[in-house]
Design a protein around this nucleic acid. Structure first.
Lengths: 189, 189
DNA sequence: CGAAAATTTGACATGACTCAACTGGAGTGG
DNA sequence: CCACTCCAGTTGAGTCATGTCAAATTTTCG
C-alpha cells in the first residue's frame, strides 16, 4: 500500500522515502465490505479517502427516496465530500462501497499539518485538485450536449468494463436516466 | 487594481506587501471591449485571467453552429480553460467579453515561477481550485435534479441582477434550455 | 430611421418519464 | 439442494416536458 501511494504521489511531485514515510504514517487504513458506508448522509465528512482497491459511489437520497449518484470512486482516486470536509457542514451525500474496498484516509487537521511539514504535498494536492476539476468540467460538457443514448455509449466506450462492475440502475442514476429508459436504450443496439 | 488583488489573495493566505508587489508585477493588464475574445476556440489557452471588472462567457460552438455556454466569469474570479492551459492543448471553448472587461493575466511559466518564489501562492491556488471545484459540483447537483423552470428561478434567486446583465439567450444556453422554451417559462411566471 | 439581433408566439414532434405488471436470476433458510 | 423471496431488469401503455421550426414582434444600436 505504501508503494502504491508513493507511486501515485510521485506523479505530481517527487517525494523522498522519508517524506513518503511521514505521509503514510499519518494516514489510516480501513476496509469496507460491499454496501458499507464510508460516509453517511447528513454527517460531516471528516476524511479524505484514497482508494487503494475497490469501488464506491457518491450519492444522495432525495425527498422521494430516489438515490442520485453523482460520482464513482475507483482505485487511485481520492474521494470525499469536499464541501463538507472543508467547511465542516453536514454532507448531503453518502459514500458507499459497491465492491469490497480498501482505503487510506486522513482528517483535515492532519492534512493541514502535512501541508505544513511537506510543502511539496500542497503542490501535489493543488495539481490533483486541478485534475479533478478538469475531469468534472469535461464530464459536464460532454453530458450537457448529449442525449441519454449518447451518454450511455460514451461511458461504455470511455471506460470499458466499468458497466460490468456496476449494477445497471446505478449507471442509469449516474447518467441521469431512469432505469426503465436505459433498458430501452440497450434493447435497441 | 493592486489593492483589489491583494484583498482577494489575502482571503486565502496572508501575503506581505512585498509579496503582493512581486505577484502584481508578474501579472499583465488588459482591457477587452464587449464581444472581444480573451481566448478563441481551437487556440491553446496561454493565460489564466483574473477579472478585475466586467463579465465574460466561456462557451463552445458545436457542429451545428450552436453556442453552448458552460460558465460565466465575473469580478474577482479566475477564468481560463484549465485543460488547455495546463496540458497545452487546443481549447474547445472560447472566452468572450459580454461587458467591457478588465483583466490581469499570467502565463503558465510565470505562474510556476511565482509558486516557486512564493509557496504561499501555491497554497492560495490550492484553496481557490478547491472552491471552484465545490462550486461546480454544487451546480451539477442542483441542475441534475431540477427541471428547466426550477433551474431558471434558482439562478434568478441565487444571483439577483445577474439576468439583467446577460442576454436571455445566453442564460438559456447556460441553463441548457432553448431560448424559446425559456421565453415560455418566463411568460407563466 | 432602418437593419440586425433578441425575444415571443404557436403548431407540432419526440425523447424521456411514470406506473404497473412481468421475468429471471441470486441468495437464503429449511 | 430445493423452494421461496427479493431485487434487478424488462416491457408496454399513456403522458408530459421540452425541443424544433417558422413566423411575428420587439428591442437594440449604428
Amino acid at each position: 500500500m505504501k508503494a502504491q501511494l508513493a507511486s501515485y504521489l510521485n506523479r505530481y511531485s517527487s517525494f523522498s522515502l522519508k517524506e513518503i514515510d511521514i505521509i503514510f504514517d499519518t494516514l489510516s487504513v480501513q476496509k469496507f465490505q460491499k454496501k458499507e458506508f464510508l460516509l453517511e448522509q447528513n454527517q460531516v465528512c471528516k476524511y479524505r479517502f484514497f482508494i487503494i482497491e475497490g469501488l464506491v459511489r457518491y450519492f444522495r437520497t432525495d425527498h422521494d427516496g430516489n438515490e442520485n449518484i453523482s460520482l464513482f470512486g475507483i482505485e487511485n482516486w481520492w474521494i470525499t465530500n469536499l464541501d463538507s470536509f472543508i467547511n465542516k457542514i453536514p454532507s448531503q451525500n453518502a459514500i458507499q462501497a459497491i465492491e469490497k474496498t480498501t482505503v487510506l484516509y486522513i482528517s483535515k487537521d492532519d492534512l493541514e499539518l502535512l501541508y505544513f511539514k511537506i510543502p511539496k504535498l500542497e503542490r501535489a494536492f493543488r495539481i490533483i485538485t486541478e485534475k479533478t476539476l478538469i475531469a468534472i468540467l469535461r464530464k459536464d460538457e460532454i453530458y450537457m450536449k448529449q442525449n441519454s443514448k449518447e451518454r450511455y455509449y460514451n461511458l461504455v466506450d470511455t471506460i470499458p468494463n466499468f458497466v460490468q462492475r456496476v449494477p445497471q440502475y446505478m449507471i442509469a442514476s449516474y447518467l441521469d436516466i431512469t432505469p426503465e429508459y436505459l433498458s430501452e436504450i440497450r434493447k435497441n443496439r
